[in-house]
């Protein structure tokens, strides 16, 4: 019997997810040995037309990372979905929209204008913008276009499983491969990580008081934090309570608060709203002025509570933007 075919693909992402696959180190060899890679743009040279030529469902599994932001990404997502038995959203961007989805606070025009005209680090006197097509030396290439909204993979095509993280850890990735290859799979739609919040595996948990009452909030760069004490007890927003565990509390053991990249537990529809409601209910002040003073320590609430989850949240996108 031939080895199962596997594809890796990237959409709107930073490349970190690809790195994790590579980070499997010697374990990658075990994987490579058992599968046939049919597409992996970051590492190998394959052509889309080769993929298009494959029979439907002939790829055993595709791990797709990155959000869906460009027309080309949507096309590939649809193509890979058709060709694959299992389509796996790999990493926070594919699962939740990730950092790229923070752009859903702005219109496409605002994004283009900033990046091609107003950005201080830019040298674009002519204010040239990317074109859908242009002709040069007699050839007319077609370029991919920006969508109005950044979407998660499952907002575009049907997804079988999710591997969370920004990026997913090698351990989770390896476990996912093992599950796939052994056929011991959870029900469709599952996130392949524990369904309990991060505090469960955080070493600082015992130091969180039962009567935490926030008087002020500090951002991570605004202090030197006690490396043994719960961040929330120190007034630093830690998304741990609203975030799925499985990372091994990587950030909190590195003395950084959790930023929420593993997304919410299966029971939560909106990670940011959940964290907000928990945090705000525990603000000590009961009067408007006191509450505002405490919340002044969170100047960017969307970036704090929806850093990875905006596209997947109930909010999705600012409502007052053009379609």
């Amino acid at each position: 019997m031939s080895k199962p075919k596997v594809a890796f693909y990237w959409c709107a992402s930073c490349g970190g997810c690809e790195e994790t696959v590579v980070d499997l180190a010697e374990d990658i060899l075990g994987v490579v040995e058992k599968v046939d890679i049919v597409l992996w743009p970051v590492a190998m040279d394959f052509k889309y037309k080769d993929v298009a030529a494959l029979p439907d469902k002939s790829i055993f599994a595709t791990l797709l990372n990155g959000a869906i932001r460009m027309s080309e990404q949507e096309e590939l997502a649809v193509l890979l979905r058709r060709k694959s038995q299992y389509l796996i959203a790999y990493g926070a961007c594919a699962q939740l929209g990730g950092i790229p989805a923070l752009a859903n606070q702005f219109s496409r025009e605002q994004v283009l204008k900033f990046n091609y005209e107003d950005c201080p680090a830019l040298a674009n006197e002519a204010k040239t913008r990317p074109q859908a097509q242009f002709t040069e030396a007699g050839r007319t290439p077609h370029l991919s276009q920006l969508h109005h909204v950044v979407r998660t993979l499952d907002q575009v095509v049907d997804v079988d499983f999710y591997i969370p993280g920004c990026p997913p850890t090698p351990n989770l990735t390896k476990a996912a491969f093992e599950a796939l290859l052994s056929g011991k799979l959870p029900p469709k739609g599952a996130v392949l990580a524990p369904d309990i919040a991060l505090c469960d595996e955080c070493e600082r948990k015992a130091t969180k008081p039962t009567d935490v009452a926030f008087t002020e909030f500090k951002r991570p760069h605004q202090g030197l934090w006690d490396s043994g004490k719960c961040f929330l007890a120190q007034g630093v927003v830690c998304m741990g309570p609203a975030t799925r565990s499985g990372c091994g509390a990587a950030c909190t053991s590195g003395n950084m608060p959790c930023t929420g990249c593993f997304g919410p537990t299966s029971r939560v529809r909106d990670q940011g709203a959940k964290m907000l409601s928990s945090l705000c209910s525990n603000v000590a002040a009961k009067d408007v002025a006191g509450i505002q003073q405490a919340l002044a320590g969170i100047p960017d609430p969307v970036g704090t509570f929806y850093r990875y989850g905006l596209a997947k949240s109930l909010l999705r996108r600012r409502v007052d933007l053009p379609a």
């Binding site: 369904d195 309990i196 919040a197 009567d211 537990t265």
Partner: peptide, 23 residues
């Protein structure tokens, strides 16, 4: 409380107006 799922974050404990939640 879903026992398996509770992470023990204690967020809920001070909020109960009837002090019904214990750790």
């Amino acid at each position: 409380i879903l026992d398996q799922e509770c992470s023990g974050c204690k967020s809920c404990i001070p909020l109960c107006p009837y002090t019904a939640i214990l750790f």
